[in-house]
Structures are given as structure tokens and as C-alpha cells.
Nucleic acid binder design. Structure first.
Length: 767
DNA sequence: GTCCAGACAC
């Protein structure tokens, strides 16, 4: 008996020792005694025993008392099983309610655990706890204050802190960490200096605070000055280096740590492993694993999850899955999520979805991984559908990460109506957006063709970074608003934000499309080290302006190897200016670089057609046939009633197709009556049977416009979204429809926008 | 006998 007591108070060191301990308790027939059950559960927490094991222990108690409950709560809390914590607490309350004499009244020991697990939701517990009078307990008091410090409003945490008459070190540490968390660096430092007694936790909080702010100089300074260090302090410093990308420093510190005799713990390993996955360096990881093996490190679920993630990021999805399968009952939501995102990053949405539906306990990250997976792999509609499921399910609340994916999906679909509904959802659910959230809104509005909204968001943002400017610049560039872009470019410099490569691409494209050659050249020369993409923009700019010799010269002078974009720009401008020689030169290079891209063949053929060299047109067509190059057919979308309707060439799948084609026929008659004759110079039109039709063909853009304007009354503006180039025939048709209907039609084509108004198109150079 | 503050994984 006394031996058992010794084990209980000293603790076991691993799971197998725990099982021996358990066996001895059974041997002494003590396994139904609450005292021993509580002790065993406490040891489960210590060695991170599997949840099923702890649950079995819990159920072996006929009448769990407050100790058994509390230890079980602690166990769940450590695993992050917050749902279990809450339901166990409710069970406790029920037991107490049913029989007041039973020793299960939730006490001051229970509330801190509950508050920690409930997170932000613990706000609703605050009043309840005050009523029970637990708020004067220093642990409970601290837990509540800490909750406000972590989840906000931090001001309330501060009020509570100021009211505490006998502040403990924990109270000071909570308020310091809270200030770091909310970005109040100066206040955190001020409070740290005011602290009557600083302990190792206070110092570690400062190291981690500076690290999270990217201030590694000060982080290191505090780390060096600490009077004592624990393994947690080392871990904080390590993770600071890793998160700020100082991998060499991290490894050096790690060796240093081992040298001074600090035993790395599981957190250390997780940090080191995740630094390998960030670098995508499987070799380093392998050698690390070797040392893990040598040290006989027992891999806990955290380490295993980090390993899983590392293998997935280094491209060994099979190994990742093996680890996942081996984890068995040790899996927690994070392991599931890591595996799901491994699949989505690999483009394997089927396997990801399968895991997602099998998961026992989904959290917001699971939904986010899945939604982002669809959004990033081009399945925008499914991403939005899943989001709608998420909000009906109500098991997890969407956060900013969710919303960024959903916003981006709306942008790719060009679904403005849906986008506005999403924005409304964000405000109604009080989801706080960071800079990157606002940036994604700017992108979304730009992609949906609503620059007024994009600009409004930009102006309303509390703070802007280079991505904010890039998003708006790229948007205006796509709409051909050159001067707006140039103004923004100078404004950002005034604000002290350095333009990056994306900025220059946006500005140069805008100059090119708006015919601002001089401005464009001037800006190009100001780039410190121009990259190949910038040269491509300049070739485009010079080419469009008709300075094809200069464009060709620039290609020859480039300090790096030109890529397809450079020759593509040259081919495109050769087409605009009917330059067969340069067109052939560019096309030759392109056929080598990307033989399967049909667009290049079409452009070359158009050049020949424009100068009447029909035998060469035929030759290009022959080449396409022998190489098996198929002209890509695009599809168009138009949004109506919160739904995105899709059309492809010659498509009859839409439920109102009959009506649409009938109206198209009538529009065609009107057009012919108005004197419009189909333009016969539209070449390669017989590559696809459908394109044989005259003016009133069945191209997707026409279907979309007719649907939007005439079948459904969408109002003044109909937005058509298409990501491939629209054909010349459709371009003309849309112009005519806009004139006949006296309405605005916005077409997104190849991520550029054309606004048709009363038969006039805003773009200058497209055809 | 239990509870709070600092580090890690998606």
C-alpha cells in the first residue's frame, strides 16, 4: 500500500509503468476506489495515455467524486478535447443537482479548467461564476482575467487586473502576455518593468512576445538576461527563430541547448521537425529521425503529427499516411487536419474529403482545410457549397481563415452578389478581419469587376501593406485604368511602402494597356533588379505601342533566358500590328516551350489570315492536327439569384436552354436587320463545328449575356466571367447586344475586363 | 490529492 502511495505521489514516467501501476491496484482490489481512480487518471494526464484508457478508468468508478471528475476534466483539457471537458462538466452539474449530498459539486478547482477549455465562450460563464462566489478564488480569478487577456476585450482584462488587491505572479504574467497578444508591445514592456517579482515564466513570455513581433534581437537579449531558463524558455527562443525563418540560428541554438545539458522535450522536437518541413528538407529530417531513434524518444501524438506534416510537405504523402494510420487511437483533431491538408495540398480532394467525412470531431481548421482545398484547386463552387454546410452544421464557427477562402472563391467565380452576401455574413457574425482579410476583399471585388467597392474597402482599411496596394493596382490594371494605377504607385511610395515584383507587374501591365508608354518605361528603369516577368511586361508595352523593333531588341538584350510569357507578348503584338516575321519568330520559340498551348497556334494563324496568307493558315491548322493540339473551349458564367450559371459552347444543359436559344435567334434577326454582317475574317472558325454558325452562334459568352439580359432581368449591368480569351465573334456580338439593349455588359476575359456600353467597348487594343 | 501564468502541431 505504501509503495502504491509512493508511486502515486512521485508519478510514473511512461505508459507501460502506468499500466503496471494499474495492475497492482487491481491486484489489491482497489480499482473501484475513487482515490485510486483519481490518482490513475492524474497519471494518464502525465504520460498522455490514450483517451480510451482514461475513459475506461473513469467508467470504473461507480460514483465518481469531485476528484475523479476534476482529474478527468484535466485529462481532456490537456488533449484539447474541449467538447469532452464541457460535457463532463455538465454531467458533474447533473450529478450534483440529482443528489446534493454527493461529493461532486463543481468547485474552484473545476472552473479554471473549464474556462481554459471553453476559450472565448467562457465569457458566458463569467456571470455564473460571480454568482457562485468563486471569483474571489485566485485561480478562478486569474483564469477569467486570462481569458479576457487572450480573447479580448483586453481592456476588460485590464480592468479586472487593476481591481485585484493581491496580484500573483500569474496575474502579472497573464496581463503581460495579453498585451503582447494584442500587439501592445510598449504596454507589455512597461508592465514587465513594474512587476514586483519576475519569474521564469515572465521572462519567457517576453522572449516569446518579441519573437512573435519578429524582433529577434530583443528576444535574444531577454533570453540571455534571464536569471534561469527552463526547457520552455529554450523552446520559446527556438520557435522564434523558426517562425522568423532563421533556420541556421535555430539549429545552432538547438545544439547549444543539448551541450549545456538541457533535455529536449516533445515541444522541442515538434519545433525542430516543423522547421524541416518549412524548408522542405527531407534529408535533414531523416538525419533528425536517426537521432530521435538513437535517443529512444517516445514519439507522442504532437511529435507524430509534426512528422506526418513534415513528410507531407516534403512530398512523401505515402509515409505521411502510414504515420497517420499507425497513430490509431492516439489521433487528435490536429492529426486529422494535417492529413487532410496534406491531401488537399497534393490536389487529392477525394481522399481529403473521405477523411473529412470520417473524422470524429471536426473543428474550424478541418473545415478551413477542406474549403481552402477546393478553392485552391479550382473548385470554387464546391468550396462555397461546403461553407454553406459549415454554417448550417454549427459545430464550428467560421473564422477569418474560412472567410478568406470563401471570399477568394467568390472572386474566382466573379460572383459579386454572393460576395456581398459573404461580406454581410462577416459583419453580422463579427468576424474580425486582419490586413490580409481586407486584401482578399479587395481582390474579390476587383475580380468581380466592381472597382468602386474595391476602392472603398481599400480606403476604409485601418492599415495597408504592400499586398493591399498590389490587389488594388492589379484590379485597376485589369480594368485598364492606367492613370489610377500610376497614382496609386506614387501614393504607396509616399506612404513609405516599398513596391515589390508584383507591384511592378501590375503597374507595367496597366501602362501597357492604357498606352502610357513613357510612364511605363520610366518605371521599368527604376526597378532595381528587374525579373523576367517585368521584361515580359515591357515587351508587351513596346509591342502594343507599335515599337516592335524595340521590343525584339529588348528580348535579345535580356540578361536572363526569356520564358513563354516574353515570347507570348511578342506574338500578341505581332498579331495586333500584323508583323509576320516577328510573329513567326515568337511562335517558333513558343511551340518549343509549350507545344500544347493552342492559343499560340491560333495567334500565328490569325497573323497569316490578316495578311491573306491562307495557305499558311492551313499549314498551322495541319500542324495542330498532327500534334494533336485541341483548341481549348472556354466556358462562361453569369451570376443570378445567388447562383452561378455556367455555359459552354453549344451547351444545352441549362434548364432554360430552349428559351435562351430562341431569344438568341431573335436577337440575331434584329442584328441583321440593323445591318450587322458577320465578320468573315474570324479565322480557325471551322475547327469546331459549332463555330461555323454566323453571328448568332452558340458561344458561351453569347449564351451568358442572353441569359443575363433577356431571360432574367438582371438590371443595368450583366457580368460575364470567363477566364480564357473570348473569340472575336463573341466580342462583336456582345457589343451589338449592348447597343440594342442599351445596357452595360461587363465581361471578364483572361482576367481582364471589358465594359460594353451602348455598343462601345472600353478596351482600346484588344482587337 | 486537484486548479492559474511562458513554448509546439493543422
Amino acid at each position: 500500500m505504501s509503495r502504491l502511495s509512493t508511486i502515486a505521489s512521485n508519478g510514473v514516467s511512461d505508459f507501460s509503468q502506468l499500466r503496471q501501476f494499474h495492475a497492482q491496484i487491481i491486484h489489491h482490489s482497489l480499482h473501484h476506489h475513487n482515490y485510486w481512480i483519481a490518482a490513475l487518471i492524474a497519471q494518464c494526464t502525465r504520460v498522455r495515455a490514450p483517451p480510451a484508457y482514461a475513459r475506461l478508468l473513469f467508467e470504473s468508478s461507480r460514483r465518481p467524486n469531485v476528484f475523479v471528475f476534476t482529474n478527468m476534466l484535466k485529462f481532456h483539457s490537456q488533449w484539447g478535447a474541449h467538447q469532452d471537458v464541457i460535457s463532463l462538466f455538465l454531467q458533474m452539474q447533473r450529478h450534483h443537482h440529482d443528489d446534493v449530498d454527493l461529493d461532486v459539486k463543481p468547485d474552484a478547482f473545476v472552473y479554471p479548467i473549464l474556462i481554459k477549455s471553453a476559450g472565448k465562450a467562457a465569457v458566458s460563464l463569467h456571470a455564473h461564476i460571480l454568482k457562485l462566489g468563486h471569483a474571489c478564488d485566485r485561480y478562478v480569478r486569474n483564469a477569467i482575467m486570462d481569458m479576457y487577456a487572450k480573447y479580448g476585450p483586453i481592456e476588460l482584462a485590464r480592468e479586472l487586473f487593476d481591481e485585484i488587491p493581491d496580484r500573483t505572479a500569474a496575474d502579472w504574467n497573464s496581463i503581460v502576455s495579453g498585451n503582447w497578444k494584442w500587439g501592445h508591445e510598449a504596454e507589455a514592456c512597461r508592465l514587465f518593468d513594474l512587476m514586483p517579482e519576475k519569474n521564469v515564466i515572465s521572462w519567457t513570455a517576453m522572449v516569446s512576445g518579441y519573437s512573435k513581433h519578429g524582433d529577434m534581437m530583443n528576444a535574444r537579449k531577454f533570453f540571455e538576461e534571464m536569471p534561469e531558463k527552463t526547457v520552455v524558455s529554450w523552446n520559446a527562443m527556438l520557435s522564434g527563430y523558426v517562425q522568423n525563418g532563421f533556420m541556421e540560428e535555430a539549429l545552432r541554438l538547438f545544439r547549444n541547448m543539448v551541450d549545456v545539458g538541457i533535455q529536449p522535450d516533445e515541444t522541442t522536437w515538434v519545433t525542430i521537425i516543423s522547421s524541416c518541413s518549412a524548408r522542405g528538407d527531407p534529408r535533414l529530417a531523416e538525419s533528425l529521425l536517426g537521432s530521435l531513434d538513437q535517443r529512444q524518444i517516445r514519439l507522442n501524438v504532437f511529435v507524430k503529427t509534426a512528422l506526418l506534416d513534415m513528410y507531407a510537405k516534403c512530398g512523401s504523402i505515402g509515409t505521411a499516411r502510414r504515420i497517420f494510420d499507425e497513430m490509431g487511437t492516439y489521433r487528435n483533431p490536429v492529426s486529422w487536419n494535417a492529413m487532410i491538408s496534406a491531401y488537399t495540398k497534393n490536389g487529392d480532394l477525394v481522399s481529403a474529403r473521405e477523411l473529412f467525412s470520417e473524422m470524429p470531431e471536426r473543428n474550424v481548421v478541418s473545415w478551413n482545410s477542406m474549403i481552402a482545398g477546393y478553392a485552391q484547386n479550382g473548385h470554387s463552387s464546391i468550396a462555397i457549397e461546403l461553407f454553406k454546410q459549415m454554417i448550417t452544421n454549427e459545430d464550428s464557427k467560421p473564422d477569418e481563415v474560412t472567410m478568406v477562402s470563401v471570399i477568394s472563391a467568390c472572386g474566382h467565380l466573379g460572383a459579386l452578389e454572393l460576395g456581398k452576401w459573404v461580406v454581410n455574413f462577416i459583419t453580422q457574425n463579427q468576424i474580425n478581419l486582419s490586413i490580409s482579410g481586407y486584401n482578399s476583399l479587395i481582390s474579390m471585388y476587383s475580380r468581380c469587376g466592381s472597382m468602386e467597392d474595391a476602392k472603398r474597402i481599400f480606403q476604409q482599411m485601418p492599415e495597408r501593406d504592400v499586398v493591399s496596394y498590389n490587389s488594388l493596382i492589379t484590379g485597376f490594371a485589369a480594368h485598364g485604368h492606367g492613370t489610377e494605377v500610376v497614382n496609386l504607385f506614387f501614393k504607396m511610395k509616399d506612404e513609405g511602402i516599398e513596391p515589390d515584383r508584383i507591384t511592378f507587374i501590375g503597374v507595367l501591365t496597366a501602362c501597357s494597356h492604357a498606352g502610357l508608354s513613357e510612364k511605363g518605361l520610366q518605371i521599368f528603369y527604376s526597378i532595381r533588379s528587374p525579373e523576367v516577368d517585368h521584361y515580359a511586361c515591357m515587351v508587351d508595352l513596346l509591342g502594343r505601342a507599335g515599337k516592335l523593333e524595340k521590343a525584339k531588341k529588348l528580348v535579345d538584350m535580356m540578361p536572363m533566358k526569356p520564358h513563354a510569357g516574353v515570347f507570348g507578348a511578342l506574338l500578341n503584338s505581332s498579331c495586333i500590328h500584323k508583323r509576320v516575321d516577328l510573329g513567326e519568330f515568337a511562335a517558333d520559340k513558343l511551340f518549343e516551350l509549350e507545344p500544347e498551348n493552342s492559343g499560340n497556334y491560333v495567334l500565328l494563324s490569325n497573323i497569316y489570315a490578316s495578311v491573306g496568307r491562307w495557305e499558311d493558315v492551313e499549314k498551322v491548322r495541319e500542324t495542330m492536327r498532327t500534334r494533336g493540339v485541341k483548341k481549348t473551349t472556354g466556358c462562361s458564367w453569369v451570376e443570378f439569384g445567388g447562383k452561378v450559371h455556367q455555359f459552354i459552347v453549344g451547351d444545352w444543359s441549362h434548364e432554360r436552354s430552349r428559351e435562351i436559344y430562341q431569344i438568341l435567334e431573335e436577337v440575331g434577326k434584329k442584328m441583321r436587320a440593323a445591318g450587322y454582317v458577320a465578320d468573315k475574317s474570324c479565322v480557325l472558325r471551322d475547327i469546331e463545328e459549332e463555330e461555323k454558325e454566323e453571328m448568332v452562334g452558340t458561344h458561351s459568352e453569347k449564351l451568358a449575356v442572353v441569359f443575363g439580359l433577356l431571360v432574367f432581368d438582371v438590371g443595368a449591368t450583366v457580368r460575364v466571367v470567363k477566364n480564357l480569351r473570348i473569340c472575336r465573334d463573341c466580342h462583336v456580338a456582345i457589343k451589338i447586344i449592348s447597343k440594342l439593349e442599351r445596357r452595360e455588359i461587363i465581361v471578364r476575359d483572361n482576367n481582364r475586363f471589358h465594359c460594353f456600353k451602348d455598343g462601345v467597348c472600353s478596351c482600346r487594343d484588344y482587337w
